[in-house]
Amino acid sequence: MTWSAWCLCVALLLAGSTSAAQAAGAIVTLKATLISPADDPRLERTRVERHYLGHVEGPASDGVQVALDEAQFELQAVDAAVALSKQPADSLEAARTAAQAAERAGAAVLLVDLPTDWTLAVVDAVKLPVVNVGDPADRLREKDCRARLFHIIPSERMRADALAQTLVSRKWSKVLMLVGPSAEDQLRAATAQASLKRYGLQVVATKAFKLSGDPRERDLANPLLLTAGNAYDVVWVVDSDGEFARGLPYRIVLPRPVVGDAGLVALAWQAQFERYGAPQVSRRFAKAAGRPMTAADWSAWMAGKALVAAVTAAPKGPAAAWAKALADTPLDGSKGGILTFRPWDGQLRQTVLLSDGQGVISQAPVDGLLHPTNVLDTLGGDAPEKLCKTTR
C-alpha cells in the first residue's frame, strides 16, 4: 500500500469513528451564555487609554474565549465541548430578559459581567448556576448572596485584606485614609477600615478629596494639604474613578508609600507576574487580544476554565448537576496552588497579587500567616463570620 493510500484509509477510519460517536450522542456539550453591558461605560475610549491600574480595559469575552481555545485538545479527548454565546444588555430588565431567553434556549450556565443589581436580577430570574466574572461587590458574597452564584473576581474585602496583611508584614501600622466623594468610594472605604481593624492597624485620620472645577473646592484635590498635619506610615487612597489616585504618589507631604487605588494595588492578576506558568498565560492572551492581560481578563479566563472543568466532569441531569460540577472541581489559575470555590459564599479562593503597575511586589496571604483550614480564607469573609446566610 502506498503512503497516500494509507493516509486516505486512516482519514476514512477517523471520519467514520467521529461520525459514529456523534451519531451515538457521545459528545457532551455545555451551553453557556455571557451577558455583559452594551456600551459598557468602563470601556469608554478615554478611560481605557489612561490605563488605570486595576480597571477593566477590554471585554470579558476576550478572556473567556482564550480559555476555551486553549482547552480544545482537552475537550476533544473526553468527547466534550463548550458552546458560548454572547448577549449584550443595556438595562437591568434587558439583562433579566436575556437570562431567561438563554435558559429557554438550553443554556446550562450563565456568565455575567454586570453591575450588582443587574447580577442579582439575572440570578433570581433563572434556575441556572451563574458565574460572576467582574463584580467585586461584597454584598453579593454577604447579605445578597445566592446559592447558585459563583464569583471569580476577588471581592473588595479580599483585596483590602491583602493590602492590610502587607502593611502588617512591613510594620506600616499608622494609616492616613483619603476617600473619594462617590457612594462606591464610601462603601469601599468602610471595607478597607474593616480590614485595617481586623489586622490591628490604626487609622490616624480619614480625609475626603474631590476633583472639581470649582475654584472654591480646589483645596480638596491638593495632595499636600490633604496629607499635612498627621504622622503616618502609609497613605491609603480610595478612588473608584482613578483620576485623583493616579497623581498621588510622590506628591504627599511625608516620604511615605501610597496604597489602595494607586501606588501598591491589590490585583487578581498582573501581566508581569513571573511564576507558576503565568508568563505563558499572559503571552497567549496578549497574542489573542492584542493587549496586556489585566485582572478582569484573568477573571474572564478563569470563568472559561471553570466551564471546561465542569463539562470535563461530564455531569448529566438538571442545572443542579452543572452547579455541583462548578462547585466541586478544583482549578489551576497559574497563581500557585489549587483554587476552589468557598462553599459558604461561592467565592473562588485565590492568591492576590500586590503590584505597582510595573511588576508584582508581593503576594497575599503573606508568609507566616496561619489559618485552621486554608490560609487563602484569610482573604475575605471567613466561614465563622456567617456573612452569607444562604444554604448551599
Rank of each mutant, 00 (worst) to 15 (best):
M1P: 14
W3G: 09
L14D: 00
A20D: 11
A21N: 03
I27T: 15
V28C: 11
A32I: 12
T33L: 08
A38C: 02
D39Y: 08
V48H: 10
H51R: 14
Y52C: 02
E70K: 00
F73E: 14
A81F: 04
K86H: 13
A89C: 13
L92R: 15
A101P: 00
D117I: 00
W118L: 10
W118A: 15
L128T: 10
V130Y: 08
K143R: 14
C145R: 11
E156F: 11
R159Q: 14
Q165Y: 05
V175L: 04
M177Q: 06
V179L: 08
S182T: 15
A183I: 07
R188V: 15
L196G: 02
L196K: 01
Q202I: 10
A205T: 01
L224G: 02
L225F: 13
N230W: 05
S240L: 05
F244D: 03
I252V: 15
P255L: 07
G260N: 03
A266H: 03
G277Q: 05
Q280L: 15
V281Y: 04
R283Q: 15
A286N: 03
A295N: 09
D297Y: 10
D297M: 12
K305T: 12
A310G: 08
T312P: 00
A321N: 12
A323V: 06
G333P: 10
S334G: 01
F341H: 07
L348Q: 03
L348D: 04
R349A: 08
S362M: 02
S362T: 12
A364K: 02
P365S: 05
D367N: 12
L370V: 11
H371T: 05
P372C: 06
V375F: 04
V375R: 04
T378I: 04
D382S: 13
P384M: 02
E385W: 07
C388A: 03
T390K: 14
